[in-house]
Simulated assay, not measured.
Amino acid sequence: MRKIYINGQVYTGSLPLCEAFVTEAEHFIYAGSNSLAMTYAGKDTEIVDLKNRFVCAGFNDSHMHVLGFGQFLINAPLAEHTGSLSDVLDCLRNHQGRTGGWLTGRGWNQDYFNDVHRMPDRYDLDSVSTDIPIAVSRACGHCMAVNSKALELCGITADTAAPEGGAIGMRDGKPDGLLYDNAMTLIQSHIPQPTEEEIMDMLRAAFRALNSYGITSAQTDDYCTF
């Protein structure tokens, strides 16, 4: 189907800007003035008024991590729900996505909590689920909170030694569900690798988000993530 776009500010790769363009079968067949663009009109042609909006070719991101971005998007969006601990927990309760059967997320920051002044611990996350393992990273990426099910599956007890460069939070002689820096690998190494379909879901989520920002191509180096 032929479409004519008029009344725009269209950048074609050189100046001056033109005001109209014509497409057919997903190809550009003309770019220039409104008057000449309208000469392409036929019986079934659709006319689109750009209302002086700017139009240019899609952007290319030459250095990003598409798969990691997609993984972030399917995780619980805690960065958007970190105004309180209760908000974090509600976000986790409502989130349907899973990574290898685990409920994961990143972005909480206790500095923004308006209900408590501490980090979330295993007991907070147990209120979300004691059956599904939960692992959620702080916004900085240097701390992770997990629930009791995650500690159980990873075999982390009061006797577990923290790896060099890491620490396991303790309370009353028991792990409190907080792991710091290199100790997070004790959890990460037990989260199952995503299936091929889950990886495709991550990529599709990333592509949809990139397209919404006008990015139509990208170079990435993280396909070896999993």
Rank of each mutant, 00 (worst) to 15 (best):
R53S: 15
S137M: 07
W108H: 10
P120N: 02
C224I: 09
N211A: 14
E196C: 00
S62H: 08
P120D: 11
S217R: 03
G101L: 07
A57W: 07
V146M: 01
G141E: 01
G68D: 11
G166A: 05
D159A: 13
G105K: 14
L125M: 02
A41M: 14
I4Q: 10
P16L: 03
R171M: 11
R208G: 04
V48Q: 01
A41G: 10
G173Y: 03
I4K: 06
F28Y: 15
D222I: 04
A167V: 07
R98G: 06
D201P: 00
T39A: 00
I74N: 05
G13I: 07
K149C: 00
L17Q: 13
H27K: 15
K3E: 14
G83L: 01
P120H: 13
F69E: 13
G101C: 05
L179M: 04
T220S: 14
K174S: 04
A205K: 06
D111E: 13
K51Q: 13
T104D: 02
L92W: 09
G32D: 08
L186A: 01
F54N: 05
G100V: 04
Q96L: 11
D90H: 08
G169H: 01
A167N: 04
V88Q: 08
A161Y: 03
L153M: 15
P175L: 10
G58L: 09
D121I: 09
G165M: 05
E80D: 12
P120K: 02
P192S: 09
L67V: 14
E197H: 11
H117C: 08
G155A: 06
A20D: 10
Y112L: 13
D221P: 09
L92R: 05
L103R: 12
R98T: 03
H95A: 02
F28G: 04
R204P: 00
I4T: 05
G42E: 12
P175H: 05
A162L: 04
L50R: 03
A206K: 00
F21Y: 10
T45L: 06
G83R: 02
C18W: 10
E46G: 07
R171Y: 12
R118A: 03
A218Y: 08
E198K: 06
D44W: 03
C56S: 15
V116F: 03
I199Q: 11
K149M: 05
G42N: 03
A135Q: 11
D115P: 03
I74W: 07
G155L: 06
I187T: 04
A209H: 07
N7L: 03
D124C: 02
E196L: 06
